[in-house]
């Protein structure tokens, strides 16, 4: 089967890129999404802070996503849910988990990013239950409706960690502290103010977790200061990595260490006709910037297809 444009991922980047390409005149578009609904990670980001620059108003994640989902549906852009792209070749043949092979005229990579797990930090100690990345805990609470913990230590002060400190507090958990190895938080100042300060949650800078305790469930952590803190849950918010496993398969060049995609000004990767947008390119602070970049990627792909 042939497709002018295949967009991989239906998060903010994929949706905006597909819409942008459509508005530039491309009609034969397919968005492929591995989850069972459109919108990507925004669906679990129920907090406000999205869209201030794009729409001039403050929206929650699901509301921001809904605007693009409505547009995709209105334009009749085709999409597939519960479908994962298994392979992309250099000549732009896309293999789906259903076995279907698509010959794409152009591809926009919009797979987003993933969280760094515990292993990447190499913290010693036991391997009990109760250790979650902040995003996994967020999904458990906001989508599935389960409490991941009661007494929580958050390692790393990335934005998702800060947001989850407030979220868990609102739902009745005791967030004991956020510890950050650096001398400055990686999160936005507004999130420190409204997620930590509002609830008197201490932020310990220049501090990290050096050991995890507990045989079955987490029972506590040892901090780099030597202090022991009892808790039943550890949330990790220690950075995001572009999810470029697929990109590598078709030969897209990545920056070592960061896993960022090396691309041209118009967002075309080293592979002819393969473009990138959003957090798969590099991790963005704000969804508004993801959208902006995705619009550009959609436009570039359209220009490429018309040439």
């Amino acid at each position: 089967m042939k497709k002018d444009l295949v967009v991989i991922g239906a998060g903010p980047a994929g949706l905006a890129a597909a819409i942008s390409a459509y508005e530039e005149g491309i009609r034969d578009i397919l968005i492929v999404e591995r989850d069972n609904l459109l919108g990507g990670i925004l669906n679990q980001c129920i907090h406000p802070g999205f869209g201030l620059f794009t729409f001039g108003e403050e929206l929650t994640g699901p509301e921001y996503a809904a605007r693009y989902i409505a547009k995709v549906k209105e334009l009749g852009i085709e999409y597939m849910l519960d479908t994962m792209v298994m392979d992309i070749t250099r000549d732009k043949v896309v293999t789906l988990s259903s076995g279907l092979k698509l010959e794409a005229g152009a591809i926009i990579l919009a797979m987003g990013c993933r969280e760094r797990p515990r292993g990447a930090l190499n913290i010693s100690g036991t391997r009990p239950s109760g250790i979650f990345t902040a995003g996994t805990a967020q999904r458990l609470m906001n989508i599935e409706g389960y409490m991941p913990g009661k007494e929580v230590v958050i390692l790393g002060s990335g934005d998702i960690g800060l947001i989850m400190a407030r979220r868990m507090t609102l739902e009745g958990a005791k967030v004991k502290m956020v510890v950050e190895i650096k001398e400055k938080s990686g999160g936005l100042a507004r999130n420190i103010a409204q997620c930590l300060d509002d609830f008197n949650i201490p932020l310990l800078l220049n501090t990290t977790v050096t050991k995890i305790h507990g045989k079955d469930r987490v029972t506590g952590v040892t901090l780099s200061t030597g202090e022991y803190v009892s808790c039943d849950t550890i949330l990790l918010s220690v950075g995001l990595i572009p999810e470029n496993e697929l990109s590598k398969k078709c030969g897209v060049r990545l920056e070592e260490g960061s896993n960022n995609i090396i691309c041209s000004e118009d967002l075309m990767t080293d592979v002819d006709g393969v473009f990138c947008s959003g957090n798969v390119h590099h991790v963005h602070d704000l969804v508004d910037n993801v959208t902006k970049e995705a619009i550009k990627a959609g436009k570039s792909a359209a220009i490429y297809l018309r040439r």
Partner: peptide, 20 residues
């Protein structure tokens, strides 16, 4: 129930009941 699923041992609880 979802909350009965364990990581490995009987006491390796993963979630503590529903939020709502």
């Amino acid at each position: 129930p979802f909350e009965d699923i364990r990581k490995n041992t009987l006491d390796s609880v993963i979630v503590f009941g529903k939020t709502k």
